[in-house]
């Protein structure tokens, strides 16, 4: 599904990722944990193709394509989704219009038919209801005036509607209280499927109590320094990053 080899990337001329390798198989849930400044967000932005992230070495294969050669919209159409740590506010574009445009543009890029408007509307409403997103929110400008929790739920709504093959959750737990966290985690868990993989990027183990990963990786100074099962997350929580990183 996703094969990252020896990835190196710079931001503002400074090398942040220093030879990162990671492999995610179909249907697997991987967690990448790391302290502040270890390169977590850089990894997610490099995967999604954001400008200003200079890849200086290594390769990324995603579903048998050279991901780094693709534009952000092409990556999305081929099944990659990034749930952002700080979802962007877009005044004047309603959530509903945005979702419809995204779903239809992805369908167009894949040569699939456009989604029937009535079916689309029903699906959005159903998923929104599960996530406790009101009709009024769907009609409001995207993320404008949404609380932190609402923004994150809106990311999960997009995730559900776009049905990607690989979903990257970048610090989806940040700024959420426990109820909001559960709601988001339930939403994500309901989307787990044999043909869908997840890369959960987080600082804290808390989220992994709800979205239980198959594999856990520790990111430090731009490289994966240790990998293991779900128990590694608990070990990190108990002992702190410093010991684990130094031991590695």
């Amino acid at each position: 599904m996703l094969e990252i080899k020896d990835l190196r990337a710079k931001v503002d001329g400074k090398e942040i990722l220093k030879g990162l390798s990671l492999s995610v198989g179909e249907g697997e849930v991987h967690a990448v944990m790391g302290p502040n400044g270890s390169g977590k967000s850089t990894l997610s932005y490099v995967l999604a193709g954001r400008d200003g992230y200079d890849v200086t070495g290594g390769s990324i294969r995603f579903r048998d394509n050279d991901l780094l050669a693709q534009k952000p919209e092409e990556r999305a159409a081929s099944g990659l989704f990034l749930a952002m740590q700080y979802p962007v506010e877009i005044p004047g574009v309603t959530t509903m219009n945005f979702l419809r445009t995204a779903v239809n543009e992805q369908a167009k890029a894949r040569g699939e038919p456009q989604v029937d408007p009535a079916t689309f509307l029903k699906r959005v409403r159903d998923v929104a209801k599960q996530l406790n997103i009101s009709d009024a929110m769907l009609k409001r400008s995207l993320n404008v005036g949404f609380s932190g929790g609402e923004k994150k739920r809106n990311e999960v709504l997009q995730l559900a509607m776009l049905a990607p093959k690989l979903a990257i959750l970048d610090e989806t737990d940040s700024g959420l209280d426990i109820d909001a966290l559960k709601l988001v985690a339930d939403g994500v868990n309901s989307l787990r499927a044999p043909d869908r993989s997840f890369l959960v990027i987080t600082h804290y183990q808390r989220l992994l109590d709800y979205i239980v990963p198959d594999h856990v990786h520790v990111l430090s100074e731009g490289r994966i320094v240790r990998s293991g099962g779900p128990e590694l997350a608990r070990e990190l929580e108990a002992q702190g990053y410093e010991r684990i990183v130094n031991a590695a």
Binding site: K71, M84, G92, Q158, L162
Partner: peptide, 27 residues
């Protein structure tokens, strides 16, 4: 940032730009 957000959802550059200009004058 808005451009990247839209494109990361699969909306091509030209459409994303058009959507944002629409949004700009929609007020």
């Amino acid at each position: 940032e808005q451009m990247f957000y839209l494109r990361s959802r699969g909306i091509p550059e030209a459409e994303a730009r058009s959507l944002l200009i629409h949004a700009f004058v929609s007020e």
